[in-house]
């Protein structure tokens, strides 16, 4: 049936997260008193609030029709992969290699065929990033791969 699935799933996820936060904070952190509120006071209260709000988002959506958005999992994975390769690679591979690899991966889902432009793009972004951040802003990141 054509329900407002975005709000149903969104509300459900937030509600569960809120309940989880409230339970974790309630069990692990001291609630304290009104005078000396403990570290658990805010998270517990906020967790309960989010659980209630999540339900308030999800329940009315059940009887509402709406178009469901499509999630582009492939695009998301490429972007996330590129960021992670760059983040964890730059101190070991050096900024040049990490940047080149990250741009190649990020460009994979782009709706345009061919390898030439991807490699050219990776090379020019790498050059630009070296010029701006290493040459210009003098950031302290290894440029070349660290040999074992």
């Amino acid at each position: 049936m054509n329900r407002d699935w975005a709000d149903i799933w969104g509300g459900l996820a937030l509600g569960l997260l809120g309940a989880g936060v409230a339970i974790y904070a309630g069990l692990r952190l001291d609630f304290g008193s009104l005078r000396a509120m403990g570290p658990g006071f805010f998270p517990t209260v906020l967790g309960v609030a989010l659980a209630v709000l999540g339900a308030a988002v999800a329940l009315p959506a059940w009887n509402r029709a709406a178009e469901s958005p499509k999630i582009a999992w492939g695009d998301a994975s490429a972007v996330i992969g590129a960021i992670l390769i760059f983040g964890f690679g730059m101190n070991r591979l050096g900024i040049l290699l990490a940047c080149f690899a990250a741009v190649l991966i990020a460009s994979l889902p782009a709706p345009h065929d061919g390898w030439r432009w991807r490699i050219l793009l990776a090379a020019s972004v790498t050059l630009l990033c070296w010029a701006v951040f290493i040459l210009g802003l003098r950031m302290s990141i290894p440029v070349f791969p660290k040999l074992p």
């Binding site: 590129a82 960021i83 730059m90 940047c99 990250a102 990020a106 782009a110 793009l121 972004v125 950031m139």
Partner: peptide
């Protein structure tokens, strides 16, 4: 398609800074 890989790299380095 030329812009967004560069944006991602700049974002990463900006956050790293």
């Amino acid at each position: 398609r030329f812009l967004y890989p560069a944006i991602l790299i700049f974002v990463c380095l900006g956050v790293y800074s």
